[in-house]
Write a protein that binds this DNA or RNA. Structure first.
Lengths: 349, 349
DNA sequence: TTGTAGGCGTTATCAA
DNA sequence: TTGATAACGCCTACAA
């Protein structure tokens, strides 16, 4: 029962040809600016096409010419402002070259990711950008034929000889933890995405490295996971809190989060329990939402190089799609610390 | 020189048929669960298809069957978190029914909008959701054939007998201005999107109505326009400010904005000039970014009913695409005031 | 300079 | 139960 109502009683090159009493292949050539066509005819065709409201059928074109001018992007959590930025940048820039961008959200699920890869593939895109929900060889193998037209974002995966736009999440975790450690925080909680998400795991490894450098060992049971949102950040904190005793079930002076939303979950928790940030508890975010500069206190966070990420994607797309180059590119960009007011220096007196 | 490298050396129903030494039409039927096919054959086909890594070509399918299971969305500024939410909600929900969503950004430009409508149309979508960049009859006329498969968001346009998902921006402007007026603000500045953007114009009209009800007339020269961003909000304020005199070039006690980003531009301006919000200047936002609850001071803003908007879209999509219904629906939802701490009550002593 | 014919991968109709 | 065949709208040799 799907799709019963009809679409455009379509104007095709055939119907234009009929009107003009010429052959439809002439129309096709005229419309494609084939120089073999007399200027006069071309103009007549173009005029008639406009008159009749002709829209080329890109399905037919794609089927025939094996190029759809489509870029497919598969991200996790497209509500994340960094990803939205990257997507918008790519799609508006590539639109100028006639490319259309489709974007799907895997929501950190391997199953949804698989479905997304399959739908994307069935649409014969010229290029795919994938932020893997996990290192799932089966899912990634589906893309093996595309490897010169595939960017993996945020994850290294050597079994596929494809482009990579890497962001050093391990380094992000590292500088995030260093900010806490250098200010005397030892009892840190980590709130992050589920660890099957590669960049989340990298993030935690970066944190571990920082602890090691401080001669400390980091206890993995202090890593709590959930999906990015204020609510989940709040809930995670709340579950660790014993209101009767006005204390955490484990010592916590600082919370390292994978996402500004999680950090605001901590803010909400603090507000609800009359705790002060940073005096009672310190927090550090990740992503650097532009608004985070205005929060109370201003959120110390890790700035993701979103402009650089978008630029790196664009360099590859440009080189492959517009220049027809074939080299495989690997680009990387590092996040930076934005130190504001949500981490207290415990060492000062 | 575009698209020189090749894609999948594609597995098609034809190649499966060859392997199995049966006709390709049998393969097609088997894959589509046509009951005329013997279970045995069907299973063999499915097995072989999986083995060979078959991906159906949706271009061919769409060309043949005149239904692409594609929903096209054209928004302005898809970085706006409300729109991102709506888009994500629609796309993930419709993905469960096999639909793919493509989204384009018109960036408030009629020209880009036109290009977007044309690309979208060429892809033969089953449904289009459009937030018009302006009331441009020429652009909208392009969609006349789609009217039963078209939602206009945020704008009423009666020349097209299509679905509408309306948000009462005029009411939003009205309650926004009322919040200012009821707290004694008379000298208000308005920062909004360019007025050719229909919802921005509605917003301003709502503000005017509120002023009228207070027996005041609203001076349109107090409306400043730009594109939503912290930077533009900041710049607009800065241009009105004379640092030497430490004063505005016109009396301003409150700023009414069309977008939380603009409001944070005002925050930034205040910070830069040692002004205090709300004591020196009041601000009210629009959209209600979830993080706005944590800003300093917490931002008073207008909450857009994003869940309701998404739901209204879904009701229509569900009814038309999945149930094959033909009635035209018009849904509306109203924004609400979220009173927090960025508007000072001038009437209290 | 224009027209004819074949095919891209499907689905759908009819015959076998 | 299966197979041949004709579209869908477009592009592109090749022929005229």
């Amino acid at each position: 029962m799907r799709g019963t109502t009809s679409r455009n009683k379509s104007v095709t090159i055939k119907s234009i040809a009929e009107e003009l009493k010429i052959s439809f292949s002439t129309v096709s050539k005229a419309l494609n600016h084939n120089p073999a066509i007399k200027t006069e005819t071309r103009q007549a065709v173009i005029k008639k096409a406009k008159e009749m409201g002709y829209t080329p059928n890109s399905l037919a074109k794609g089927l025939r010419s094996n190029t759809t001018e489509t870029i497919a992007i598969i991200f996790n959590d497209i509500e994340n402002p960094v990803l939205t930025y990257v997507f918008r940048d790519i799609s508006t820039k590539m639109a100028e070259y006639g490319y259309t961008t489709i974007i799907l959200d895997s929501q950190f699920s391997e199953k949804i990711e698989r479905a997304n890869i399959l739908t994307v593939l069935s649409r014969q895109p010229d290029f795919i950008i994938l932020e893997p929900a996990s290192i799932n060889p089966e899912n990634l193998a589906l893309l093996s034929e595309m490897s010169n037209r595939l960017i993996l974002q945020g994850t290294q995966y050597d079994a596929l000889n494809c482009h990579h736009v890497h962001v050093d999440y391990a380094y992000g975790g590292y500088i995030s933890a260093c900010e806490m450690l250098s200010k005397g925080h030892r009892d840190c909680l980590v709130i992050t995405e589920r660890l099957s998400f590669p960049t989340s795991e990298q993030f935690v490894q970066g944190i571990e490295k920082a602890f090691e450098e401080y001669g400390l060992s980091f206890d993995r049971s202090r890593v709590k996971t959930g999906h990015s949102s204020i609510t989940e950040g709040f809930t995670i904190m709340q579950e660790l809190w014993t209101p009767a005793e006005n204390a955490f079930s484990m010592p916590i002076t600082g919370v390292i989060t994978f996402d500004d939303n999680f950090a605001y979950g901590v803010y909400k928790f603090a507000t609800n329990n009359n705790l002060n940030i940073p005096n009672d508890i310190s927090v550090i975010g990740f992503d650097d939402n532009p608004i985070s500069a205005f929060s109370m206190p201003a959120l110390t966070t890790i700035h993701l190089p979103k402009e650089k990420m978008a630029e790196n994607h664009m360099r590859i797309l440009h080189s492959v799609l517009l220049k027809g180059r074939t080299e495989i590119c690997v680009f990387s960009a590092a996040p930076t610390l934005v130190s504001r007011g949500s981490v207290k220096n415990l060492l000062k007196t």
